[in-house]
Design a protein around this nucleic acid. Sequence first.
DNA 1: CGCCATCTTGACAATAGTCAAGTCGGGTGG
DNA 2: CCACCCGACTTGACTATTGTCAAGATGGCG
Lengths: 268, 268
Amino acid sequence: MTNLFIRKLELRASLSEADRHALEQATAKVMQVEANRDLIAQADAPEHAFVILEGFACRYKLLPDGGRSIVAYLIPGDGCDLHASILPRMVHSIGTLTPCLVARIPYQTIKELAAYHPNIYKALWWSVLVDEAILLEWLVGVGRRPADKQVAHFLCEMMVRLQAVGLVAENSYRLPITQSELADTAGLSHVHVNRVLQDLRKERLIEQKRRGLLILDIERLKTFAGFVADYLHLNTGGGHQGFYEPLTDVAKLQLKARQGEQDQTGSA
Amino acid sequence: MTNLFIRKLELRASLSEADRHALEQATAKVMQVEANRDLIAQADAPEHAFVILEGFACRYKLLPDGGRSIVAYLIPGDGCDLHASILPRMVHSIGTLTPCLVARIPYQTIKELAAYHPNIYKALWWSVLVDEAILLEWLVGVGRRPADKQVAHFLCEMMVRLQAVGLVAENSYRLPITQSELADTAGLSHVHVNRVLQDLRKERLIEQKRRGLLILDIERLKTFAGFVADYLHLNTGGGHQGFYEPLTDVAKLQLKARQGEQDQTGSA
DNA sequence: CGCCATCTTGACAATAGTCAAGTCGGGTGG
DNA sequence: CCACCCGACTTGACTATTGTCAAGATGGCG
């Protein structure tokens, strides 16, 4: 079974056998991390990129009042801040929510993957943009949606994302997070989250059993939340259509540029 | 006087004379756009990249209820979605808030700039990451900060950003947006924004006069808002320090990769 | 001079937060 | 094997912030 990181990238660009092999090599060095550990801490200069192979993690910011705000979820197959090394230090942290199996990848390897494998580079860019789109959707949601719809929207989003990596069966998925964590995500108090979840259960939209979540009526839940999956860019064909592929082009142009230099200097 | 796009990029990477020349060429084709016009509309397949040379624009999302949520401000010197072409369609719009002078750049040109000018590529990446950092900060703010601090925080952020491109004089800057737009930004009702601004004036933190904003006590305002400018990555040295420069490296590696291919095929 | 967008005000309602006191349930150690 | 413990969840009463509605003031611009 291929790992979920590769599976996820294949949704965004078609990968060759060589691409896949390179990715397998890059993610071969895995480590087990317990729950509630920081992979990268705020104000660090990041040293490694990480890919989550199993478990849930999140990007979060610590607040002046001691609380925390969760700004993104990392699910199996997600890389975290693969590109973070461009900025000198982190302004947020990455922490595990559950025990995780993660691959630690030196930035050097990321660079090499990007350089030798245009398809991988393209898939990574795609991921960055989708992450940003999710952020936008959250920003809109936190500001404008009432608490119940906001929570429902989040549940829909997680379902679609988990579905894309095969972690949803029969409208049901494990959501191994506490109500407090959900509160830190939605910008609500944990008390209010509790009440909202009760309402969703009463409406027979969801069912909960020990960290598992059962979606009883996904269509009704999506309607209720006003959820439209566009922004996740999952069903738009990924790398399998003929749309613009800037990174491949950039690679070609960079080659041409360097060749031009060489012609002038006449070296080898 | 160099244009502000170049000035802004120079904060992020040191540019050579050739880099600057290429950027000047790329942004030579300018157009005047009136206020409240879309540069790119939601659901479009983007066709051109834009750079704002004068005026204010924003990224916004239309809401199901007909309202809109402003998720980012574009100030002079900012590019908008220079990389948007990777995703097949926009999930948000770009619109002007004031009359703007914009440069329209074909994606092809962006690709060429990125390919032939590693420093420019690096600066563009830097911009993408800073934009994302701003988004994170907003997400936290909308969720957790009370309305008055949220508005104050926004005013601090705009001041620092405008300062970086020389548009702040004597703690004073023009903020040419309506209270309704500010409300769409902060996720508040326009009525409440009005009251919050009145409070800030009563506290003698700011003064307003026809679309101009005067910061009376920037230190007190920052303290009040809990504003810390880290996340804008403005004073961290930009391209003038010896930290990691992945894009330059990627260019080099890509060259090596292609040369390897050529060696094998033996083609000229 | 008058129009229209913008801003302002007041009264009231609704959403969500806070505080404080339980309950529940799984895991640990005796 | 059972009791206890602790984190997670639940509940109720009360408060605070913010939204909504509706009406009116202001002020630049034609």
